[in-house]
Design a protein around this nucleic acid. Structure first.
Lengths: 134, 134
DNA sequence: ATCAATTGCGTTATGCTATAACGTGTGTCA
DNA sequence: TGACACACGTTATAGCATAACGCAATTGAT
């Protein structure tokens, strides 16, 4: 899944997500981009679909929101080296993205044992980050 | 979190979920219960909130839907002995609920290391069950 | 060069998911 | 008995996501 050059809309959405230090809903992104000519949710959702496909953005299922991939610079996402997990602070909104090989492997083992063919795995931990828990 | 006797609405919602072999959205539950006097989403959501609190029901974040806890009979859920994971078949809709101590422990270690205080953890694997993958 | 297929884009309308805010009734118990 | 907690019912609204239409630009094979 090599990412081609982004289109204008895709770039705009990606920029907004990259600048944000917290997840954003599609509608929040839309509002941020009204000045750039965005008028309808579909403009955002279509861009997000592509960005997700390219691995530049992640969707947080438990929030119905989106974040830029923390490792977009490296080969992490574009190579799809495994399942990514998220720790979401419910106080400040900060999201830590990490990969745990052991967890990945363990879930893979379970799937293998059960004959289940995984397509996409979601791991999200909600709680308080170290700064907010202090 | 010992579950007290369920109220009428809670029982109705729980029954519907128990009879279903796939997750159900709140609105689908509502439709199933129109004959029993349900008229508004809030009647369902309020019951679901309690059932979730009692550990009798789980919410599937990646589907915005709900399932009865597979282990409701045992002490699994009511005791909250750890994080539960779900394997969701995208073909037949069947959901397997399981617990993996190693995964649980591993994520706990990560949290401890980072000073993150977990409140709720979501693990959902979407794919094809053995029957549908065959 | 041209035609067909693909892709992105814009717009309108709609559907699905979830909660706010208000009021009612009922049971507890100090 | 009066304050409180809790379940319930209703209306309205907020928030998230996609269907369906049409147009424009690009690509690529013939």
């Amino acid at each position: 899944m090599i990412a081609p050059a982004l289109t204008k809309n895709q770039s705009l959405v990606f920029e907004v997500l990259n600048r944000s230090d917290a997840p954003m809903s599609a509608y929040t992104i839309l509002d941020r981009l009204r000045d750039h000519g965005f008028r309808a949710p579909l403009q955002v959702y279509r861009a997000l679909d592509k960005l997700l496909e390219f691995g530049l953005v992640h969707r947080l299922e438990s929030l119905n929101a989106f974040v830029a991939c923390s490792h977009a610079q490296s080969d992490c996402c574009s190579r799809g080296h495994g399942t990514v997990a998220f720790a979401i602070c419910e106080s400040c909104g900060h999201v830590s993205e990490f990969h745990d090989h052991a967890v990945d492997h363990r879930l893979g083992d379970w799937a293998k044992e059960k004959g289940f063919k995984p397509a996409k795995t979601t791991i999200e931990i909600r709680g308080l980050c170290s700064a907010c828990a202090a």
